[in-house]
Design a protein around this nucleic acid. Structure first.
Length: 410
DNA sequence: GTTGAGCGTT
């Protein structure tokens, strides 16, 4: 989003180059708001790159046109990209100049804001008072180290309305009595449905779950900005275990594509933690999710999965974007699901994945591969996944249901 | 030596 707008990445800098030096140097182009030179946490040695944030984002354009030599080293100055952007190859190379239109307010509307860089002296009062200028503050939290009780330098502020949050986030930095703090949407700490507790009942591959989880974490920050960028947040699915794969749709111009996912692994039909609900939205808590209602957005495909055990339906839940619940179901088995389109144009959701090993007992056929959905481009249609798993003799067959629904073509 | 870092409570 705009968060990195006006932020310059400077690579290949000398180890001798200090922040002051960088600031001085780039200060010729415009007012430098902040400079960071990244260092190895352990050794403290500079890693050879840093970031320069300009007060006026447009300055960046001029900076990018020149080549730069600092402390005798030719350095490379580029527009900074957030981690998310980096990994998703989907970065649309053409958003020059910050002209990124899509960003906007992002689709996530969390009413909680993470505030970093708090001065140690800041009190809850001061914190609250400042933010009250933006709207009704419902909660204020400044974090302290549990042992030392020293301020950890960050906190959270919750608002009553999303609008207030949006207003606050219009600027990445805020000035609290002369100190600068940085604001970001708070990451939902509990954003992780799946895994949890019962996740392992079935045990068998819990560890896999962990990994998956781990990945997701990375991407959680991912999401944070992703929101920003593209419009459509990544969906992910949580799965209770197993593989969690997920796709998401980047948004650039109009095509989403669905990711897809996972694999299922041979899941013996048992065991599964039913817990995992599939859902598209990353923000998990109900509260947060509710905010989506207004937003239409995404279609998403729900889970395909393999066989339906008794569990199948259970997870469920998950409210859909517009309140209707999209099949929620999560089966499990494998989970993979794709995600879909949105926005109207073509996305297609997909779901890859193969159904996993057929559970012995019920599903005979065992998984076929699922194929995914696709979407059609008529405005309405995203179609989600349709996987279906096995057909079976069993009474219940898996059929997954995704569905897609991209509502809101526009 | 070229893309960071912080995320909690009721």
């Amino acid at each position: 989003m705009d968060s990195d707008q006006g932020k310059l990445f400077v690579g290949g800098i000398s180890w001798e180059t200090t922040e002051e030096k960088l600031k001085d140097y780039f200060g010729q182009y415009g007012d430098v708001y902040q400079v960071n030179i990244m260092r190895d946490k352990a050794t403290g040695r500079p890693r050879g790159f840093g970031f320069v944030l300009f007060s006026d984002p447009s300055v960046l354009d001029r900076v990018l046109q020149d080549k730069h030599t600092i402390d005798g080293r030719p350095v490379e100055a580029k527009r900074a990209m957030s981690r998310e952007e980096q990994q998703s190859s989907g970065r649309t190379g053409n958003n020059n100049g910050g002209g990124r239109s899509g960003g906007g307010g992002g689709n996530f509307k969390t009413k909680k804001i993470f505030v970093g860089g708090l001065p140690p002296t800041l009190t809850d009062e001061g914190f609250r008072q400042y933010f009250e200028n933006y709207g009704q503050v419902t909660d204020v939290v400044i974090m302290y180290d549990q042992n030392t009780e020293r301020p950890r330098g960050f906190g959270f502020i919750s608002f009553d309305s999303e609008d207030a949050v949006d207003r606050v986030l219009q600027n990445n930095f805020h000035d609290l009595n002369g100190k600068q703090v940085e604001v970001k949407r708070a990451l939902p700490k509990d954003a992780n449905p799946g895994m949890g507790s019962r996740g392992n009942g079935g045990g068998y591959n819990s560890s896999g779950g962990q990994n998956a989880y781990g990945n997701r974490m990375d991407s959680s920050s991912y999401m944070q900005s992703q929101n920003a960028g593209g419009g459509f947040p990544a969906g992910y699915g949580s799965s209770g275990y197993g593989a969690a794969a997920y796709g998401y749709g980047p948004a650039s111009g109009g095509m989403g594509y669905g990711g897809y996912a996972g694999y299922g692994g041979a899941n013996p039909g048992y065991g599964g933690p039913a817990s995992a609900a599939a859902y598209g939205n990353p923000n998990v808590s109900n509260a947060q999710r509710s905010s989506w209602n207004a937003q239409a957005a995404s279609g998403y495909g729900a889970a395909g999965y393999g066989s339906a055990g008794p569990w199948a339906a259970s997870g469920a839940g998950s409210g859909g974007p517009t309140g209707q619940s999209p099949s929620g179901a999560s089966g499990y088995g494998n989970q993979g699901y794709g995600y879909g389109s949105y926005g109207g144009s073509d996305g297609y959701g997909s779901v890859g994945n193969r159904a996993g090993g057929a559970p012995a007992s019920n599903a005979a056929g065992g998984g076929g591969e699922m194929q995914g959905g696709y979407g059609d481009a008529n405005g309405h249609g995203g179609y989600g996944a349709g996987g279906y798993g096995a057909q079976a003799n069993g009474p219940q067959m898996g059929y997954g249901g995704g569905y897609g629904g991209a509502r809101q073509a526009q």
